[in-house]
């Protein structure tokens, strides 16, 4: 029973991280019909920027966890927004008309650039870095299961962030513009929507979600690694596809579904802990074979 609770909590945390990343993928695909393959590494950039802010503030003698946490999140968000917007502005938008493959390659290589920059230029960046515990580690004893506050806080915040994104997309003028562009770029332009601005804002928005996913990852595992974005990127992208690219709810469902599969797999399979990541990537491959266009279905718009 206790173990079950532990697994459920772990699954929920993973699911929230995947969902945050997947929503980014799906937002970008919505407005531009492109895959931002460096998105996973943007997550890592966020986590490391947060770490940097923490180190800087600690150096100047700031030790209040609340202040530190806020600084970490802000720094992470700032870093991801900068990277995300730069990618959109200088890499994706200029080659929008080129074959989809080129956009994919450019962003994939950009991911490598980000990853390598962290490895090379972050102090001792090729080694995993300890991420500070900034949330209370106490919790409630629910029978045999120990429910930690920090996990609850992270899940709640993640949920709120996704809910806020949803409200932004469905209830605001900006969201309307994003949806209009996603629906039909040409029409949106003729309606007087500043296409470029909407794209940049969307990339900023998705990148903020990535920042939170990165910080969440760091706080949950107490460790970050320059290559962490690869796993999160691949799984986040797979989750977005699973939910149907361009579909916000689909991405969230996909994220949690993926985490559930992974958690169940870890329980059900022997030697599961060593082969945890092997299993995760295997699931990605199998899912792509079984449901190549996702459970909900991507809109297909090829004219013949």
């Amino acid at each position: 029973m206790a173990l079950l609770g532990q697994y459920a909590m772990n699954g929920a945390m993973l699911g929230m991280m995947y969902a945050l990343v997947a929503v980014g993928f799906t937002l970008f695909f919505g407005v531009l019909d492109v895959i931002q393959f460096s998105h996973g590494d943007v997550v890592a950039a966020g986590a490391f920027a947060g770490l940097l802010a923490y180190a800087a503030l600690s150096f100047f003698g700031v030790h209040a966890p609340g202040v530190l946490l806020l600084a970490v999140i802000l720094a992470a968000a700032l870093a991801t927004i900068v990277v995300g917007v730069l990618v959109a502005r200088f890499l994706v938008l200029p080659i929008k008309g080129a074959p989809q493959l080129n956009v994919l390659l450019v962003t994939l290589m950009m991911g490598t650039v980000v990853r390598e920059c962290i490895r090379l230029f972050f102090p001792n960046g090729s080694q995993p870095q300890r991420f500070p515990a900034l949330l209370p580690s106490s919790g409630w004893n629910l029978g045999a299961f120990y429910l930690r506050f920090d996990n609850v806080i992270l899940l709640t915040c993640g949920g709120l962030l996704i809910a806020a994104t949803h409200l932004l997309i469905t209830r605001t003028r900006l969201g309307l513009a994003i949806r209009a562009v996603a629906q039909d770029e040409e029409t949106a332009r003729t309606m007087g929507i500043d296409f470029k601005r909407v794209v940049l804002v969307t990339f900023a928005l998705g990148s903020v979600l990535a920042a939170f996913a990165g910080v969440m990852d760091g706080l949950y595992y107490n460790e970050v690694f320059f290559g962490m974005g690869l796993l999160l990127g691949v799984i986040g992208f797979a989750a977005a596809i699973l939910g149907g690219l361009g579909n916000l709810y689909g991405a969230i469902v996909g994220g949690f579904l993926f985490a559930a599969l992974q958690t169940v797999g870890a329980v059900a399979l022997p030697f599961a802990s060593a082969y945890k990541d092997v299993f995760a990537f295997g699931v990605v491959i199998v899912l792509m074979a079984v449901r190549p266009t996702g459970l909900i279905g991507e809109r297909v718009s090829e004219r013949v």
Binding site: F37, V234, I241, P292
Partner: peptide, 17 residues
Amino acid sequence: RTRGHYAALVTIAFALL
């Protein structure tokens, strides 16, 4: 069964796996 970016994802997943 997949095109473009999906095939990319599958092979990346395989490389990491």
